[in-house]
Design a binder for these strands. Structure first.
Length: 575
RNA sequence: CGGGGCGUAGCGCAGCCUGGUUAGCGCGCCUGCCUUGGGAGCAGGAGGUCGGAGGUUCGAAUCCUCUCGCCCCGACCA
């Protein structure tokens, strides 16, 4: 491609709307332009990156035995009513009606459509297993789109769905995807971890997220320092505390103490001369419309997703003080589990506490000597709190670390949730009718582009991993006015293309400085310069974007040498 | 949806508080000269319903009301 003919609008200044580096560089480098909040046009260079990622995904999915198809973006409401998600999915599902007043939605995911297809086309166990995937634009009416391609409302996603005869067979399909995902992200040049994850609204029993490690990540991961355990904090389990440690003699009676104006855990601890760990923190959540009290130790935090899962709820959010007061007339700030007229759920750790301090449900008063089990009995006790750095790993007991990640892939074991809801069955070898055992597997293709940049950039711009770079080589002609130099550059441009190298030929009438800056900004892995060195010595310069290493090469050798470097590097990354 | 902020030329911003010429500046863009190894220089030029609507006023980018859009912080997710 000739740069002079390409729509590649780079800018020197960073648009004020961009906060994170990937967003800034994608805008500055002329990869994307915003049309509306969370909705972007992919300019030629941006599209090239998307297509590179998509092709890697496609190759590895095919290698794993999956087949590509393409489903409609517009989906009938009836299908979603069948699965029950028309109600469940919420405002993120963009709904609309056609001229006949029939309900439709823009597909945020395709379990319904694929399950409908499967029940029509798959009748026999002989047709299984099947794994079907597509690479398509999805739409989710995100509450808050942000960070450019990291969280758009419209985005390119690969979604795959597997159908199996049994749970065991589905496990195999899952494992195949697990392995394929490792290959995909490795080939994309990403540093990532697979972590145990919450299943969210998609539902199902078991799932892994694939996380690109980056400071700007929106998810927090728990990673063990000693073993391979890794999980999303939303999910990361905490081993139950050892019980029976408290000697009975030390158990005191409950007492009411005046604590005027003292509300926060820190204040209470200071005022009463106890540790935060001796206090029971009572947090009020709105769980599917009802108020629920969640108890954790004073020095811990409630993990809302864990609470949600423990209660089997669909929606959980922290209730604000106003709501709590209006609904219960209880004194916010002085709440405690003793005689609390709300459903109480306790973290397992709370049940092991002795002689605790808790709110008295009375303004300006707390209780001391509170004994869980004696003075109150929770509706449920379980793992509720968020893991903190240094907590013991649930797998090996070693200390865990917290780190940030960008979710680029998510695989789920769905079981028969959808096939049952939508009556999708096949006939098994013994003649019996069975529901498909399903799995679903997503990859955020456009998000990978953003994640790759978050992980690979410097102050000059992007440093694309070779396999996802929009071009492999940028060829700079710095001697446009010199006929011989230009002839040589043009010839090299063709020679590289003949060898299958993807090359952007900068033939613009620009000063060298601008060309260097643009080349760095858009992150092409290899840069070849034809200019002064060619005129003096008949040599060209080859520079690697990542480390700035530069060598000069005899002009005649240049195309072959660079093509060889690229092929070797690609082969190494493909594993 | 709750909280915070911003809409002035393609991009980055000033002007607004304290209303009053023809609304400025830098970058970019166009023309010419000059220059050519890390975003040069000189000269000339184009480009604005000041997000939109209504109001106050002799007069509104500026004050008031409404509205739309966008960004940031929380709950959702590839």
């Amino acid at each position: 491609m000739r740069y002079s003919q390409m729509l590649l609008p780079t800018t020197r200044e960073t648009p004020s709307e961009a906060e994170v580096v990937s967003h800034q560089l994608l805008l500055r480098g002329g990869f994307i332009r915003k049309l509306s909040a969370g909705v972007y046009t992919y300019l030629p260079l941006g599209l090239a990156v998307i297509q590179k990622v998509a092709q890697i995904v496609r190759e590895e999915m095919n290698r794993a035995g999956a087949q590509e198809l393409l489903m409609p973006m517009v989906q009938p409401a009836d299908l979603w009513r069948e699965s029950g998600r028309w109600q469940k999915y919420g405002a993120e599902l963009l709904r609309f009606t056609d001229r006949h007043d029939r309900g439709f939605c823009l597909g945020p995911t395709h379990e319904e459509v694929i399950t409908d297809l499967a029940r029509r086309e798959l009748q026999s166990y002989r047709q299984l297993p099947k794994n079907l995937y597509q690479i398509q634009t999805k739409f989710r009416d995100e509450i808050r789109p942000r960070f450019g391609l990291m969280r758009g409302r419209e985005f390119v996603m690969k979604d795959a769905y597997s159908f199996d005869v049994s749970d065991e067979a589905a496990g195999l399909s899952y494992q195949k995807m697990f392995d394929a995902y490792h290959r995909i992200f490795k080939r994309c040049g990403l540093e990532f971890r697979a972590v145990e994850a919450d299943t969210g609204t998609i539902g199902g029993s078991f799932s892994h997220e694939f996380m690109v490690l980056a400071r700007t990540g929106e998810d927090t991961l728990v990673v063990c320092e000693q073993c391979s355990y890794a999980a999303n904090v939303e999910k990361a389990a905490i081993a139950p505390p050892e019980t029976g440690a408290a000697p009975p003699a030390s158990v005191r009676e409950m007492a009411r103490v005046s604590t005027p104006g003292v509300k926060k855990v820190e204040q209470v601890a200071g005022f009463l001369g106890v540790r935060p760990a001796d206090i029971i923190k009572t947090m009020i959540y709105l769980v599917d419309g009802d108020l629920v009290a969640a108890l954790v130790r004073g020095d811990r935090e409630v993990q809302a997703v864990k609470l949600k899962n423990l209660l089997g709820a669909t929606e959980v959010e922290l209730a604000d003080d106003k709501t709590v007061y209006e609904k219960t007339k209880l004194p916010v700030g002085y709440l405690g589990p003793v005689n609390l007229p709300l459903k109480v759920v306790a973290d397992q750790e709370v049940m092991a506490m002795v002689n605790c301090v808790a709110g008295a449900n009375e303004k300006q008063y707390h209780l001391t000597g509170v004994q869980p089990g004696r003075d109150f009995v929770p509706f449920l006790a379980g793992d509720l709190r968020q893991v903190t750095a240094g907590d013991p790993c649930p797998s090996c007991g070693g200390p865990v670390q917290l780190t940030e990640g960008i979710e680029v892939g998510h695989i789920f074991k769905l079981g028969t949730a959808y096939s049952e809801a939508m009556s999708a069955t096949f006939q098994d070898s013994d003649g019996s009718e069975k529901h498909f055992v399903m799995g679903c597997y997503g990859i955020g293709v456009s998000r990978i582009a953003a994640a790759a940049i978050e992980q690979n950039h410097d102050r000059h711009g992007i440093i694309f991993p070779l396999p996802v770079a929009p071009f492999q080589v940028i060829l700079l002609n710095l001697g446009l006015k010199n006929e011989a130099t230009t002839r040589a550059a043009e010839q090299l441009y063709h020679d590289l293309q003949d060898r299958g190298v993807e090359v952007l030929y900068d033939d613009r009438d620009e000063r060298p400085g601008s060309k260097f800056q643009d080349a760095d900004l858009i992150g092409i892995p290899y840069r070849i310069t034809v200019g002064r060195t060619y005129e003096k010595e008949g040599r060209v310069e080859v520079r690697r974007r990542r480390d700035g290493n530069t060598e000069t090469i005899e002009y005649d050798q240049a195309a072959a040498t660079v093509a060889g470097m690229i092929n070797r590097e690609l082969a190494a990354m493909a594993g």
